[in-house]
Structure formats: C-alpha cells, structure tokens
C-alpha cells in the first residue's frame, strides 16, 4: 500500500485523455452512422426505412454492455482479434449511431410540413428539399438533444473498462487497488468526468448561439 501521489493524479489525467478520445471518435463514427440512419428513416423508401427501424430497435433494445462483449469477443470467435480500443470504438459508434439517428429523425419531423410543401412546389427533389430547406432547420432543433446524448455518451464510455480498455474509470480502479484511497481516487475520477461534460456543454451552448446568429 502506498499513498495517493501526484504521479497517480497524472496517471488518471492521462487515462482521461482516452475517455475523451473514445468519446470524440464515437461522436464522429456515431454521427456518420446516425446521419445515414436518419436519411433511411425520412426518405420515402419503405425497405430502407425498415432496415433502419430494425437497426435502431436492436441497438436500443439491448444493453450497451452486451454490445461491447459481442463486438469484442464475438469478432475474436470469427478469428478477428481486435484491440479493446477498436472494439470500443466500433461498439460505441454503432450505439451512438442508433440514438443520434433517432434524435435527428425527430428533428427532421419537427420541421413543419408546410416547409416540405413550399420547397416541393418550387420543384426541389426530396434530397434537395432535405439539403437546402429541411436539414438546416432540423439542425437547430437537434442541438440540445444531441448535446444531451453526447454527455450521456461520455459517462457511458466507462463501460469500455470491462473489455480491458484503460480509460478514466479503469485507471481509477487500478490506482485504487494500489493506494486504497477510494474517496480520493473516485472524487478525482468524478471531477474529471464532470469537467469533460462541462466543457462539452459549454462548447455546445456556444455552437447553438453561433447557429442562431448565422442562421
């Protein structure tokens, strides 16, 4: 047993960078998947819509932990050895994609129907309507729930510790095992999560403000 030293603090901060990295990559990967899912959901093509609905239901109807296990161990069964990092990125992107897709579909549907009619009546095609008229308005509607989901995602990255990915929570467990100072360790860990989420919300508030000014 040793004391909680400055080096432990830096170790935690170093691990926090992995939490941040996993969050950012999942936001990007999930954003990409979410964008596709949203499109499949709002385009008037029944088979596409059904595929998207199945995807969303599977992801939203199963625990994230299970998805992590399936990606990590499941791929290994088929001979694809993946690192905890890769497995976590894949699982979190798939997870975020389903939720963001739903959030964005909701935002698209929140744009008044009259905007679809007005844009159709000057001759825009469905994709052009989305691109020039509907999505720019939906983006504004989607900002608060999207940020809310990002914050939720930051905290959920702690689950990646279970497949051996050393992020903030896992690092906390390691330091705690060495120092046995749970209060100190987990307060630092909690504070780090708080700071990440706080920065994220601030950035987003700014983004929202900019969007309002820029239209």
């Amino acid at each position: 047993m040793r004391d909680f030293a400055t080096s432990d603090f830096f170790y935690l901060m170093f691990a926090a960078r992995w939490t941040v990295a996993l969050t950012i990559v999942s936001i990007l990967g999930g954003g990409l998947i979410g964008g596709v899912i949203m499109l499949l959901r709002v385009l008037p093509v029944a088979p596409a819509r059904i595929v998207a609905i199945i995807y969303i239901n599977v992801i939203q109807g199963t625990p994230l932990l299970g998805q992590l296990f399936i990606v990590f161990f499941g791929l290994a069964v088929f001979g694809y050895e993946v690192s905890p990092w890769s497995a976590a990125v894949v699982a979190f992107s798939l997870y975020a994609g389903a939720f963001l897709g739903e959030i964005w579909r909701g935002s698209v549907h929140a744009v008044p129907k009259t905007q679809w009619e007005a844009s159709a009546s000057i001759g825009l095609s469905t994709l052009e309507q989305l691109r020039y008229v509907i999505i720019p308005q939906a983006v504004r509607i989607s900002v608060p729930p999207t940020i809310g989901f990002w914050v939720h995602l930051v905290k959920n990255t702690s689950l990646a510790s279970i497949i051996g990915f050393i992020e903030l929570t896992r690092a906390g467990q390691i330091i705690n095992a060495a120092t046995f100072r749970p209060m100190t360790v987990y307060l630092v860990v909690a504070a780090a999560y708080f700071v990440i989420c706080f920065v994220l919300t601030r950035l987003s508030a700014q983004l929202e403000g900019n969007l309002r000014v820029a239209r």
Partner: peptide, 27 residues
Amino acid sequence: VGIVFQSFNLFPHLTAERNITLGLTVV
C-alpha cells in the same frame, strides 16, 4: 405552376433573396 399559401411558408433560415434564388440555382 406557382403556388402561394395562406401562411407564406418562406424558408425562415434564408434571406428573401436566397428564398427566391434557391429554386433558380438548384432546380
């Protein structure tokens, strides 16, 4: 065939000018 609605239905995120040019440039 142009149609104008009771509730205007301009595109709120675009200027008057862009509301008008959108169909011209895109369509």
